[in-house]
Nucleic acid binder design. Structure first.
Lengths: 332, 332
DNA sequence: GTTACTTGTGCTTACTTTGAGCATATGTGG
DNA sequence: CCACATATGCTCAAAGTAAGCACAAGTAAC
């Protein structure tokens, strides 16, 4: 064992650190992500992402904030690091002799605001890229019609222990065969679909031909993104779903005031499942997360709802305040 | 917004990606970490760490495994990425014109085995670096005698909102003034001590002189490590404490067979607090985490204990098996 | 204005989980 | 036999959760 020696410049020139960020918002009960369309319109869309410049930026996060602001006009609020990827050939350019990209993924939370008109950026529904994750209106159609049957075929393509391994992973990720659906395992599910070749990126990355049935499946397993951005997005969704359960991050995504039902809708949008209304409001009330403003809402057709605001103080009062939602959707 | 252009080589040469790993084990009811002493014996010890070489390694994790094996002879089992740091002047060499280190921290789990004799590496007790984290024998002495009084002084050095901010952070991290001690907030506590200048690294990094009282405090706030390795270690401990609650990672650290009490001691060693024996065994039994081997232990002076083994199958059966320990130590 | 419908709010009830302790089992060494 | 130690089974109260009933207070249709 030795302390790291200063590596020779020749080695250094092979690495570029790239920062990618999933910027989340919730608008009209729909979870949104800021997506960027590259100038080459034929290319797939992707997350905002750019290089880390050590000569200008003191920290990775500062680098991220700076150029997101420069390029989209957004000032990021809550930012959280997710994961760092350094896989070979993640970026097709590398095959052409480009440097190895080491990519640091981030999750940012905010409210949907206008992005600079120069930017070819847009807010899109999160579930467009993960149609199997939205259980708000019951079991997603794509799950029973395409995903699970195709996964079963893939599982049966293997034999012996490999088949058992595939069965186990399906149980863990998708809750089949007695397992439970865990709404946080977004990454597990995406990676399983990737491994089974059921998302477009998989066959693109491998460069292999796939049979027509699989091509058809890929068409309905959500919109593909450039490079491994859908993987980063899956990581972000899983992390966010976990986090709202023990930290009041949901309020980063809410307007200053809101009704309890709006709050519930926002949580449901992220958690991807329906919640019991009475229990939800009891939970929120007991945790002391919100306080009434004294006003009532311009109603939408029923009894007017009381308008609340977030109590910032709870962050100081409780060790782990959050909206502890029980979104363990059980199949059937 | 634009897709990331290939940066010019001049910029590239300023970055080196470094991999650091906290390799954890539990021996004799004591949590251990593999620590490396640099050739220069005057320098502080640190975690195993080395550069990432994109020409040789397909992934970051593969790079980590490869050179840990080369340098210590260890074959890492369970490995988990923690966090990526890119702060300026993390490494003193950078001030001398060295490249910016971007450091990817990892947590690895294993059993304490002999390291290569060539390696100047050794297993040390984890709490040597975090004496305030070990509540197994009641409130750590250093907490009441040094840490909390010094933090209070530091808090009172500020005024207005800054003082309130410091008070809040103390409450959140150390559970003072009505807050609860959360055993997962290891990083929060370390960073607070760092900010308050109560750990050696803080004054070393800033290069500023400190008053004698603070120097005395630093002497008892745990052994310092090189660069930001103690921060990585804090991240690792916090993550591990969180993880044993919902994933059966504890078994990565246990021998093939064990008694329930040994298992409890291991969990206590990591969680940093005592557990209720009967409830612990009920929990473990209910979760189906272990199964009896039929043998009983060579006892240590009481009724012989039944010997168990880990049931690997549970990983497939339950969505989130783990030793859900309630280590919310309440002060006093 | 009555009715149907929508949304909001309070409360109850059964069930599960958790924290803590008592009691007993089965070994040791005097 | 005793005292002592550790292991193990069981009870019990408190707290937390899931689900539903009932009613309040609005709007829209007729």
């Amino acid at each position: 064992m030795k302390t790291p020696a200063s590596p020779e410049p020749a080695r250094l020139s092979g690495i570029v650190v790239e920062l990618s960020v999933a910027i989340a918002a919730v608008t009209d009960e729909s979870p949104k992500i800021l997506m960027v369309q590259p100038p080459d319109t034929a290319a797939r869309a992707g997350l905002p992402c750019g290089p880390f410049d050590p000569t200008e930026h003191r920290t990775l996060e500062e680098g991220l904030r700076t150029w997101v602001n420069e390029q989209t006009g957004l000032a990021l609020g809550y930012v959280e690091q997710l994961y760092t990827f350094g896989n070979k050939f993640r970026d097709p350019e590398e095959r052409a002799g480009g440097p190895r990209p080491v990519s640091v993924g981030y999750l940012a939370l905010g409210r949907q605001t206008e992005v600079k008109s120069t930017a070819k950026a847009d807010w899109v529904d999160w579930y467009r890229h993960f149609p199997w994750e939205d259980w708000r209106k019951g079991t997603p159609a794509v799950l029973d019609s395409v995903v699970l049957p195709r996964l079963a075929t893939w599982r049966d393509d293997a034999n012996g222990p490999e088949r058992q391994r595939r069965r186990d992973r399906m149980m863990l990720a998708f809750g089949v065969e007695g397992g439970a659906w865990d709404n946080e395992r977004v990454l597990d599910r995406y990676e399983l679909l990737y491994e089974a070749g059921l998302v477009f990126e998989a066959s693109f990355d491998s460069g292999q031909k796939v049979e027509p049935g699989v091509v058809a499946a890929q068409l309905v397993t959500g919109a593909a993104l450039t490079k491994d951005h859908r993987r980063i997005l899956a990581t972000a969704l899983g992390r966010l779903r976990a986090k709202i359960k023990y930290r009041p991050v949901i309020f980063e995504l809410m307007p200053a005031t809101f009704t309890l039902f709006q709050l519930q809708r926002a949580v449901e949008a992220l958690a991807g499942g329906p919640l019991h209304k009475q229990n939800f409001r009891r939970l929120v009330a007991n945790e002391g997360l919100v306080e009434p403003t004294g006003h009532v809402s311009a109603q939408t057709g029923g009894r007017p709802a009381e308008i609340f605001r977030f109590r910032r103080e709870v962050v100081h009062e409780r060790p782990a305040p959050g909206v502890r939602v029980p979104v363990r959707v059980r199949k059937k």
